[in-house]
């Protein structure tokens, strides 16, 4: 009986390991394929010989993309967008989460109700667009920075975190007559470094990946951002998707490498911050799942 169980369990465990390994492989291979394409020589790509390893290793396509496609401008803009945006986000999130974490705050429920309502009822794309237009913010990063100055979801996560800090920490300082701002800066924030770092990273990734609002609010070529430029480069090869007759064979394939390189360029910064993100995000998801 016992032996039989062990065999069934062993078969099950082998199945689980093989299955998970397969899923991981399936999820990783597309990206490896793109990486391989991005580093492969043109002829190898044209002949369709590249699968999961670069053939005729070269950096030519990278050189071409960086010199020809305005991607440096988009990168510079995106770094600026991300930096300023994240600073605004973190400051405003703290300014919202700290007072709202205080149960003694009169009017707290009214503020929370007003904020929650905006999560339940969305005015819609067009009213938001008209609003930004009326505020004369179109074609400026301020439209993105200000309209995305705060994420209610992240604010609630930080509020929950502040509420989890022991009250006694602040009480003694309060008795000594320290003001709320002083308590926040000198006691609470130093204790919240990890939480703030997590939230900052999440905001930063959001800015880096931002696409739709950039497309909606910004039409100036000199303000193009990375995802917008990437989408433009990817669309070049829509001719390829439809096997358009007027695109020459040569051009089609070279576009293929350009596409791969652009995807890699857009993801490398995410890969760099990912280990830091991963260190904290599991906790973040769990805090978020407990209601504030």
């Amino acid at each position: 009986m016992k032996v039989k169980e062990r065999i069934s369990d062993r078969i099950w465990l082998v199945f689980v390991h093989v299955f998970v390994a397969l899923v991981v492989l399936l999820m990783t291979l597309p990206f490896i394929n793109i990486l391989a394409l991005s580093f492969s020589g043109e002829t190898a790509v044209i002949q369709g010989r590249v699968t999961f390893w670069p053939i005729d290793f070269t950096l030519n396509t990278y050189e071409r993309v960086f010199t020809e496609s305005q991607i440096l401008l988009a990168l510079r803009n995106t770094v600026w967008l991300t930096l300023v945006g994240t600073v605004i986000n973190v400051v405003l999130t703290v300014l919202a989460a700290y007072p709202l974490a205080k149960r003694r705050l009169k009017g707290r429920n009214v503020f929370l109700a007003l904020i929650t309502f905006t999560m339940i009822f969305y005015a819609g794309i067009i009213p938001h667009y008209i609003n930004i237009k009326n505020l004369k913010l179109l074609d400026s990063f301020w439209s993105l920075w200000l309209s995305g100055a705060l994420s209610t979801y992240n604010m609630i996560i930080l509020k929950t975190f502040f509420q989890s800090l022991p009250e006694s920490l602040e009480e003694s300082a309060q008795i000594d007559g320290a003001s709320p701002i002083r308590i926040l800066v000198q006691i609470v924030l130093p204790l919240s470094k990890a939480a703030l770092a997590t939230i900052a990273l999440f905001y930063a990734v959001g800015w880096w990946n931002s696409y739709f609002n950039n497309m909606l609010y910004i039409n100036k070529a000199e303000l193009t951002t990375l995802q917008i430029r990437l989408k433009e480069l990817l669309s070049l090869t829509n001719s390829n998707l439809f096997q358009n007759a007027d695109a020459s064979e040569q051009n089609k394939i070279v576009e293929e490498s350009v596409k791969a390189v652009s995807i890699v360029i857009a993801t490398v910064p995410i890969l760099i911050v990912y280990p830091f993100l991963q260190k904290y995000f599991v906790k973040g998801v769990m805090i978020g799942s407990i209601k504030g």
Binding site: Q227, L230, K259
Partner: peptide, 23 residues
């Protein structure tokens, strides 16, 4: 992949599924 943008993931899908050159 949760941290990749939809532009990247969409681009990757279209790319690897393309009938001419997709893996």
């Amino acid at each position: 992949p949760y941290f990749f943008s939809w532009v990247v993931i969409g681009g990757m899908f279209v790319d690897i599924l393309s009938p001419g050159t997709g893996v």
